[in-house]
Design a protein around this nucleic acid. Structure first.
Lengths: 255, 255
DNA sequence: CGCAACACGTCAATGGTGTTGACGTACGGT
DNA sequence: ACCGTACGTCAACACCATTGACGTGTTGCG
């Protein structure tokens, strides 16, 4: 087939659609995000997106090679929004912490899209900017390249993995979400001490802790471990705050 | 519509299919898992499953309400298999490490099912057994309840989140999977040092590291951090192995 | 300033998907 | 032996992403 997608830079003409809109890559991405936000991830189909744009569904293929390319564009948009306004302070632990929490929070703001986007590698500008920044924080902090790369990898995958995980919980149909949450009181609260002594002994703590996302604490653990690997060997970080994580309550996935 | 699924207990008659097989819930689950394992994640469709069973595709609906019910049955099977044969050694770090790697590996063997399973709380016996075991490892090791619960939470969510993340990469259609992998050489290898100095400086390391899952190293970091929080304060763990993780190469999600 | 090239929105068609209702056969309980 | 029905099969539906062909209106250029 002949490639029908014209690169964004070299477009020349625009014709309005049936309903008068002039299409663009940007308009399509924003409409798709809105569609997902308002009507759920399953609402994103070529046909429905066309309808939302007031255009023929196949007009999409003038701007994106296929739906996967559109999805990558959505993913990159999320990454970009997560970084807007972020600046490095020079304290590598504070910088990684704020970056991780921003990514996590921004993805959770669009759970349905996050679910589709969090496990892709786009290679698009917003993504490369994020990679560059995180690597920069680590190398500037004095980590040797090989170690910086490994920590970068663990850090990024953990942020995205938790984002997808928590987004999945938020994106569940309400019935399933409440069902999963109720399991803690319907099942775990009633497990007898003779068969499940550890669960029985810690149940109140357990039920309370599982209400929120495990990410903030997991992130602190990663930062603590990274500090022990830092070249300035003896530097000991402050013990990660044993307080509850702030912010809105997040339903939690998994047991 | 009339419910056409007969509960497993009260089935009465069986007739062989075209190719002589006698269907059952168990046979269907095992065939589906085999299908995913042998022919890739995308091979699981109702029509192909029917063909693999030697039956009409719609015979499925005599045993499962819909494909989602089938996938949940697959998921339940996975939880059990991940723990089969696991035993505690008394070394809490080794025990958590083996448990985490087992969960991760078992889920990755069936990416499609893992994707649906990893973010649900089932409260079923296999799940409660896993919770009890992990909590047991931590409390037996001497962690106070509140801390044990928090570490448990981070550990479990990390294992499931990475499992889902890596499973998602494996479950992608082959074209998208190869595309994501290729981005590293098509885009990141070519970023100029003046705009992306840190990526340019570390590229070979970066490309090599991103080929595998970030989970094994992220898990080591979690264990290191947990050790620093252990009541026997001064106990210092061996530095996490800076060697590459063993095992099969896993395509990697996210940047 | 006018015109021709072609970008791009549209239409029609293809082959995939999950799912449902109707049907008949052969098997079980009586 | 014979009924009732479980269950395997068939045909059809609605939806999906994607492609090739087509004509029109915009725009760059002479």
């Amino acid at each position: 087939m002949v490639e029908r997608v014209i690169p964004e830079g070299s477009r020349r003409r625009r014709r309005p659609t049936k309903q008068g809109a002039v299409l663009s890559e940007r308009l399509i991405v924003e409409t798709a995000l809105r569609l997902i936000e308002e009507h759920g991830a399953e609402a994103l189909s070529v046909r429905r997106l066309g309808a939302a744009l007031g255009a023929d569904p196949t007009a999409l293929y003038r701007y994106f090679r296929n739906t996967d390319a559109l999805l990558l564009a959505l993913a990159d948009e999320l990454i970009g929004r997560a970084q807007d306004g972020w600046t490095a302070t020079g304290d590598w632990r504070a910088d990684l912490r704020s970056m991780g929490l921003r990514i996590h929070a921004r993805y959770l703001a669009h759970p349905q899209a996050a679910l589709l986007a969090a496990h892709r590698t786009t290679g698009r500008p917003h993504e490369t900017r994020a990679v560059e920044r995180i690597l920069g924080v680590l190398r500037t902090a004095g980590f040797q390249d090989a170690l910086a790369v490994r920590i970068y990898h663990a850090f990024v995958d953990q942020a995205l993995a938790f984002a997808a995980q928590d987004a999945a919980a938020l994106a569940l149909p309400p019935a399933a979400r409440e069902g999963d949450a109720e399991v803690w009181h319907a099942v775990y609260a009633k497990l007898p001490p003779d068969t499940h002594p550890h669960i029985a002994a810690t149940f109140p703590l357990l039920a309370a802790d599982m209400r929120d996302s495990g990410y903030p604490f997991a992130l602190e653990l990663l930062l603590v471990a990274a500090a022990t690997l830092h070249p300035d060997g003896t530097q000991t970080p402050p013990t990660p705050a044993p307080t509850r994580s702030p912010g809105p309550v997040q339903p939690v996935p998994g047991p």
